[in-house]
């Protein structure tokens, strides 16, 4: 399902590319940083729309959100596995509010900078922050993850909780994160994986086929687990680590699920989206969801697959593989010496 959607998105992108020279390019670009980004620039997501989604989410957001808090908590758990402290930390958009809530002194963070592209979201965070007096020194920036405004070698830790899957140039954004890290700095990210909302994906497709005789992309192409590993190594992170978690959330109805997605700013922001959703189709989706996936107690489950990525900026103290061909002892000899009893 997901790969089908991704392939469709790619196909549409090809079309878009061919047409691009006709469309005036409104984006600023500079000679040095712009070139690298321009090379692989594909526009899948409407970042301006996503920014408006996040403005809305700043108001719709609940005080606590069990799903997001669980993800943030799991992400921050990784800090406890490190013996290192991270005095200056940077948190990219997404559910940074949940990261702040679940921090509870982990990772030895003294200074936390939070960035989002929505002004309302940043103001909301600052408002919540002013209510609490403990915790690290807080700074706030309005900025875009695709154009990270952070100096090279300045941060010990860069986190992103459920934000990176809305970025067009993900490798580019991750490379910028790596550059902003100090040597031996940690990059931690949680993104939604391809299994996410598979029930809703199926219900949407069936309802659209049934009512409209065709489908339009209602959901983003999301990363698969293998993509996450590739992304980390492509961005040049050392000691990459990827793991996956799956959360099932029960809702009373599909409408409640959509409300929750809105509060998390996780609603459709594809460029290729259809701007209209017929009332009929929406209701049919809810009904199909209920009948196909509904549980005995009347609730409906929704799957969220979260991929956690860990990577370090290179440092001489990190373990490295030896150069190819540099071994002086053959594996055969080692086996003769140590492994004879296992044969």
């Amino acid at each position: 399902m997901a790969s089908g959607a991704a392939a469709a998105a790619r196909r549409l992108l090809l079309l878009r590319h061919r047409r691009r020279h006709l469309v005036p390019n409104h984006h600023f670009s500079s000679s040095s940083a712009g070139e690298e980004l321009d090379g692989g620039r594909v526009k899948i997501f409407d970042r301006d729309l996503k920014c408006r989604h996040r403005d809305r989410a700043a108001w719709a957001m609940r005080e606590t959100d069990p799903l997001v808090d669980a993800v943030a908590d799991n992400l921050l758990d990784r800090l406890e596995d490190c013996r290192k402290a991270f005095p200056s930390a940077f948190c990219l958009g997404g559910s940074a509010g949940a990261v702040r809530r679940s921090l509870r002194g982990r990772g030895g963070i003294e200074k936390l900078t939070m960035m989002d592209m929505s002004v309302d979201m940043v103001n909301k965070w600052r408002e919540l922050e002013s209510a609490t007096d403990d915790g690290p020194e807080m700074h706030f920036i309005v900025g875009d993850e695709e154009y990270l405004p952070i100096k090279e070698n300045s941060q010990d830790l860069i986190m992103s909780c459920l934000g990176l899957h809305w970025i067009n140039d993900l490798p580019g954004a991750m490379i910028q994160c790596r550059l902003a890290l100090k040597p031996d700095g940690l990059f931690l990210a949680a993104i939604l994986g391809g299994e996410t909302l598979k029930e809703l994906r199926i219900a949407c497709t069936i309802a659209q086929m049934e009512r409209e005789g065709g489908i339009s992309p209602r959901m983003s192409p999301l990363a698969q687990v293998r993509d996450a590993g590739n992304l980390l190594s492509r961005a040049g992170f050392a000691l990459p680590g990827v793991d996956v978690d799956r959360y099932t959330v029960k809702y009373n109805s599909a409408l409640e699920l959509v409300e929750h997605l809105r509060a998390m700013a996780e609603t459709n922001a594809l460029f290729q989206r259809s701007p209209i959703l017929k009332r009929d189709t929406a209701l049919a989706t809810a009904a199909i969801y209920q009948s196909m996936f509904g549980l005995e107690d009347g609730t409906i489950p929704a799957t969220f697959q979260v991929i956690y990525m860990t990577g370090w900026k290179e440092h001489s103290s990190q373990q490295k593989p030896k150069r190819r061909g540099s071994a002086t002892v053959s594996f055969g000899d080692i086996r003769k010496q140590f492994g004879s009893n296992q044969d």
């Binding site: 600023f28 670009s29 500079s30 040095s32 940083a33 712009g34 200056s88 200074k111 900078t113 020194e137 700074h139 920036i141 900025g143 875009d144 154009y147 990270l148 405004p149 952070i150 100096k151 090279e152 300045s154 941060q155």
Partner: peptide
Amino acid sequence: IPQALADVLVCPLSKKP
């Protein structure tokens, strides 16, 4: 802007101070 924050900010496009 706090000095500590101003110190780490760069232009998002050129990455210059």
